[in-house]
């Protein structure tokens, strides 16, 4: 599936590291957190960009140093009803001051898109075929919010 970013499908240059494969020096690679943890030096001297793929049972605070080096973090959404990634995203951003691309991957659906955007996700890798028109409409169904998180152009209670 293509990646959604800024309301558009984009060509994705990222390659996810295959299981058991060695971390290459070149290329933009998404590396599972466990692989990066097993050999921290594997990330050193890379010429391409590095992303970390983090499952939703990981306490991201425990990996601040690694995350600080990442060009992208990919959080997992195994089921749209499992909201752990939302809190992981908030911790990444608010407590670890993470500022690079934040991707959510998995059971990504249009009806949760606004929640994702509001928790700081800015790219979306869905298992489903997404109708971009419906996606963009869903993002603009609400123009008001009571919480000051990633409110974008939403009007916030003040």
């Amino acid at each position: 599936m293509p990646i959604i970013k800024n309301g558009q499908f984009v060509e994705d240059g990222w390659v996810t590291l295959e299981e058991g494969a060695a971390v290459p020096v070149e290329g933009d690679v998404i590396i599972p957190l466990e692989v990066a943890l097993a050999d921290v030096t594997a990330l050193d001297g890379r010429t391409g960009k590095t992303a970390l793929l983090i499952s939703n049972d990981v306490d991201v605070e425990d990996h601040a140093e690694l995350i600080a080096k990442a060009d992208m973090v990919v959080l997992m959404l195994p089921a749209f009803t499992d909201g752990r990634a939302y809190s992981q995203a908030m911790v990444l951003i608010e407590e670890l001051d993470y500022k690079n691309e934040l991707r959510i991957k998995g059971d990504v659906l249009v009806d949760q898109a606004l929640h994702m955007v509001r928790c700081g996700f800015d790219s979306f890798d869905s298992n489903h075929e997404i109708d971009l028109e419906v996606w963009n409409k869903a993002l603009h169904k609400m123009s008001t919010t009571y919480q000051r998180t990633y409110e974008g152009d939403l009007q916030v209670r003040s």
Binding site: Y86, H115, R118, C119, T145
Partner: peptide, 13 residues
């Protein structure tokens, strides 16, 4: 009530 309405982080507890 206001704070919890459509809370983006806490809608899929």
């Amino acid at each position: 009530r206001q704070w919890s309405s459509l809370h983006p982080e806490f809608s899929y507890l």
